[in-house]
Write a protein that binds this DNA or RNA. Structure first.
Length: 231
DNA sequence: GCGACAG
DNA sequence: ATCTTGTCGC
């Protein structure tokens, strides 16, 4: 799929924030989004060299699963130099170049993108999942391993239990337990999907492990791509 | 100023 | 995120 970046590349954090504020208006918060997506893609990156600075490489990976069978139907990677430092709330600008390049190498168009990180659960309501949603026009959701913004009450101990993430008086995501007695993941919508639907898909994609298969496979693929390119 | 900090 | 020794639990 061809992707056009609708903004100049930011030279510093201030410009990056301005871009987020601008593009945040383009986020589609309408639900329900795809009830039964045929193809679900997982995205992740791996770094070589400095994990926070601008010296290393970033490998982006996309793995597309057929939801009904959990079979891999497509995959793509791209390795790029890191061009933006790690700044809280702005790490999308570190990962976007590699992820967009990988998405462009896909031979199919996914019905849903699951990103490693947050979507609306972001200080400016524009986390990586929202950014990728606006760029691609596809439904997206974020699955993060640790909370970022917001607070939530206690959630039950069993798989499927959840508690809404509240920030600034609004629901921005949900702490969702995907395995009995295991730490929850943090799901937030990115673009063109609602929270309940996103959580349903995340749960369905995580039958055996804490993280969805899409994320696990993309994580492994991004590390492999890095080895083949750098190390 | 201090602590915390998506990946 | 990545590096990496040591440790706990199944």
């Amino acid at each position: 799929m061809q992707i056009t970046i609708p903004h100049a590349w930011p030279a510093d954090a201030e410009q990056a924030v301005a871009i987020q504020d601008l593009l945040a208006e383009r986020v589609d918060r309408t639900g329900p989004g795809p009830r039964a997506p045929r193809l679900v893609a997982g995205l992740d990156v791996a770094y070589a060299g400095d994990g926070t600075g601008t010296d290393g490489l970033v490998a982006g990976a996309v793995v597309v699963l057929e939801a009904a069978t959990a079979r891999v139907v497509d995959r793509a990677t791209a390795v790029e130099p890191v061009t933006f430092p790690y700044v809280r709330g702005l790490f999308a600008f570190r990962e976007l170049p590699a992820l967009v390049a990988a998405l462009e190498r896909l031979t199919v168009t996914p019905d849903l993108l699951l990103c490693d990180g947050h979507g609306l659960a972001h200080p400016r309501r524009f986390g990586l999942a929202c950014h990728l949603g606006v760029l691609t026009g596809l439904p997206t959701a974020g699955v993060a391993k640790t909370p970022f913004v917001g607070t939530h009450g206690d959630l039950g101990p069993e798989r499927g239990d959840g508690a809404d993430l509240i920030d600034g008086g609004e629901v921005v995501g949900r702490a969702l337990r995907t395995q009995d007695g295991v730490k929850p993941v943090y799901v937030s919508t990115g673009h063109a999907i609602d929270l309940d639907t996103a959580c349903r898909h995340v749960l369905a994609l995580a039958p055996d492990f804490r993280l969805p298969q899409t994320t696990r496979l993309a994580d492994r693929l991004s590390r492999d791509a890095l080895k083949g390119a750098a190390g």
